[in-house]
Write a protein that binds this DNA or RNA. Structure first.
Lengths: 235, 235
DNA sequence: ATCAAAATATTGTATAACAATACGACTATT
DNA sequence: AATAGTCGTATTGTTATACAATATTTTGAT
């Protein structure tokens, strides 16, 4: 008889998950303030449960709070974006080094790229984003490094939130697929330094894309607003 | 008039802090299971408060649990130690690169080294460890990278716990001080690659020291026990 | 001794209440 | 009108209690 590892979901986890979705989907916008009683009614669970769920999301970086204040959806500054990408680059380059050294190429990453290649320009940004995350997730998990995974988890939620804010920019599934394919091939090559370099390129392309979207959004604003944001280094 | 940023401590934080100390100090040993009611009585706070404190320590990696089970103090495997050091090396090398590039040399790190140099061989391992952590903490904070700091925090507690387990090995404050001094000088030099390399050496010396202690401990055991541990890759 | 059922212990969730803090509205004073 | 002070309200932080769900131990039957 084989044994199954069943996956159960506690109430707190379910609330945290749904609340995350509400944030990612835009139901809650940056700077929105969420009070515990309000959430308690929304999900029809006791306030204690909400508080536990909030702690999870605080750790994921998609909610913030000061003491004795209500939590709020974070607004990422340019500095936040820089920091996120810098750290992500660090982690992913190390991942690329490990995997190419070990000659490991996770199936999940391969299938994610295949899925991307099947997307057409009419498909949604969300769809593309899903495969993007699946790809990188698979790579990290293949390292088998508990701490690296923990680290990546702690920034991936923030990353996802940042990316959804700037989804509106023009994007091309085919280009995205090609970039991921190249990265994957570099890892497959077995040359660690080449893989690491490909990773750097990949992440920097991603960052450049975001920055471009940010600036495009800013130009669509009126000058005063743009100047204000520029002064406050916020998005 | 200058403004102060006051630091307050909530009940949960105080409990978490004290509980951490109890774990670091060895009052709770690896594999010890801690029930919530037991802790509730020990600290004379309601169970809900204990639960919140536990969540913090779970994130710090100095407590673990499976669902519906009591938490327990982790026992680090050799793989854990390897993983911890690998990731720590990654973060600290990046830190060294950043600081040497920017020409930043935090005061806290300098004073930590000075304190080490004043220690004699009669002083305690705990004392030395304190300055060691102060040194690395200061470096990380000087990067101003929120995510890097968050990450470091998430492994430093585990690191400290691992180090306290193996405190018994022979140690030399003067050698420790010298190693840190050399690392600091390398950062000061302004040559990033030299600083990064010095960092690698520093961390690897630290890891080698731990491994040596581990093996020494193992040899003091009886053969059966040693073989058992070897088989289970646990310490 | 082995297995199953019952009793117990422990975590997870729910409800309520109160204390501490933050925030806004209002008032009094100048 | 502007300012500082006071009060009331909303919100978070903490405590208390109870019960449900799950895990563990004990007991009992075979």
């Amino acid at each position: 008889m084989s044994t199954y590892k069943l996956r159960t979901v506690s109430v707190v986890e379910a609330v945290a998950e749904q609340l995350s979705e509400d944030i990612f989907s835009g139901a809650f916008r940056p700077r929105d303030v969420l009070t515990e009683t309000q959430l308690s009614e929304r999900f029809d669970v006791p306030r204690q449960t909400i508080r536990s769920a909030i702690v999870m999301l605080l750790h994921d970086g998609i909610l913030r709070r000061e003491r004795n204040k209500s939590v709020y959806v974070p607004l990422f500054s340019e500095e936040d974006i820089r920091d996120l990408f810098a750290v992500r680059r660090l982690v992913e380059m190390e991942t690329a080094r490990i995997l190419s050294t070990r000659g490991v190429l996770p199936e999940g990453a391969k299938s994610a790229v295949r899925s991307m290649e099947l997307l057409s320009d009419e498909d949604s940004w969300d769809e593309l984003l899903k495969y993007d995350f699946q790809f990188h997730q698979a790579l990290i998990e293949a390292t088998k490094s508990t701490r690296l995974q923990k680290f990546y988890r702690s920034i991936s939620a923030e990353m996802r939130l940042a990316l959804t804010y700037f989804r509106s920019g023009d994007f091309s599934p085919s280009r995205m697929a090609r970039e991921h394919r190249e990265f994957l091939d570099a890892i497959r090559s077995g040359d660690p330094s080449a893989a690491v370099e490909a990773c750097r390129v990949h992440i920097e392309e991603s960052e450049a894309f975001i920055n471009q979207t940010i600036h495009a959004q800013r130009e669509r604003m009126d000058p005063d607003r743009a100047r204000y944001l520029s002064d406050n280094k916020s998005l």
